[in-house]
Simulated assay, not measured.
Amino acid sequence: MITIKSEREIDGMRESGAILAGMHRGLRDIIKPGISSWEIEEFARKYYADHDAIAEQIGFEGYQYATCVCVNDEVAHAEPRKDLILKEGDLVKVDTVVNKDGYMSDSCWTYAVGEVSAEAKKLMDVTKKALYLGIDQAVVGNRIGDIGAAIQKYTEEENGYGDVRDLIGHGIQPTMHEAPNVPNYGEAGKGLRLKAGMTITIEPMINTGTWRIGVKEVPNEDWQYYVSQDGSLSAQYEHTLAITNDGPKILTSQDPEFDAKYL
């Protein structure tokens, strides 16, 4: 069931989104060569506690961490690890869901560790632009397929990258994962029609190689995460947004000047 949110509910989500965005901004100073991915987890937990918020994914299907931290070919859902030390040139994706007073927001961001290759920088730029091309299509009267088609055309047809199919965006609020599904690929003019009051995530996961992904099991834990099937680099950017009669409104903006048209 798709729930249509009131202005009060969207304002609550915007408050949680501001906390999430602040955490991501803080990671810009934390992520550097020599730290472990576990230090990202520690930073997020403390930031949320300091802002009277919680990480919603702790306890979700047995997951016990505030963040998912993926490095290089890891696409999604990898755990933060004390023995995973970041090195110069790595790409790190940090995905997290914040709950503030019952209102949720979800955002993933890709970070360069030190100086990265031209290939990695281009992947980051293309993936981030793909997110905003998808957001541009998230207007009242458009269809879900318009979002995915814009992302797929730019990433695959124009740049030759792999647009991951198996992991997609989704509705959010009052729980972490709600209807509708929001694929990062699709056909324009197809799918559910967007209505004011819907709140969704758009989250392209883009590989420099194939769009296909593989699964890795976490030793001694009932958990698995995803990697690019061919070992190619992967990037992800994600915002939570509200569909409104005034256009899409980003609820997890880290940069108000950059996102001014969406606020």
Rank of each mutant, 00 (worst) to 15 (best):
E74K: 11
K93T: 13
G62R: 10
A76P: 03
L84C: 15
E56N: 11
R81E: 12
Q64C: 10
Q57D: 04
E79A: 12
V71F: 06
E88H: 05
V75P: 03
Y65H: 14
A49C: 08
H77I: 10
Y65W: 15
D52L: 15
L86V: 02
R81W: 01
C68M: 14
G89T: 00
A55S: 10
V69W: 03
K82I: 06
E74G: 03
N72S: 06
L91H: 02
Y48R: 11
I85M: 09
L86H: 01
E61N: 15
Y65I: 03
L86T: 01
E74N: 04
K93G: 07
R81Y: 06
F60H: 13
K93C: 09
N72W: 02
V75D: 05
V69S: 02
K46R: 15
Q64G: 14
C70L: 03
I58R: 09
E74S: 08
L91S: 00
A66P: 06
V71W: 00
A66F: 03
C68D: 12
H51Q: 10
Y63P: 03
I58F: 07
G59S: 07
V92N: 00
E74D: 08
D83V: 11
D90F: 07
A78K: 09
A66M: 02
D52S: 15
C68T: 12
E88A: 05
A66G: 11
C70A: 11
N72Y: 07
V71D: 00
H51M: 05
E74A: 08
L91G: 00
E88T: 03
D50Y: 10
R81C: 06
D90R: 09
E56D: 15
G62Q: 05
V94F: 08
D52G: 09
H77T: 06
A78C: 12
K93S: 12
E61Y: 15
K87W: 01
N72F: 08
A78T: 01
D73H: 12
A76Y: 07
Y63E: 00
K82N: 01
L84I: 12
I58H: 05
G89N: 02
C70F: 01
Y47V: 05
R81D: 04
E61S: 13
A53V: 04
D50F: 08
Q57I: 11
E88F: 05
R81L: 13
I54N: 10
I85P: 00
G89P: 00
V94E: 00
K87N: 09
Y48S: 08
P80T: 02
D52H: 12
E56H: 13
F60E: 13
I58V: 13
L86F: 01
L91T: 04
L84W: 11
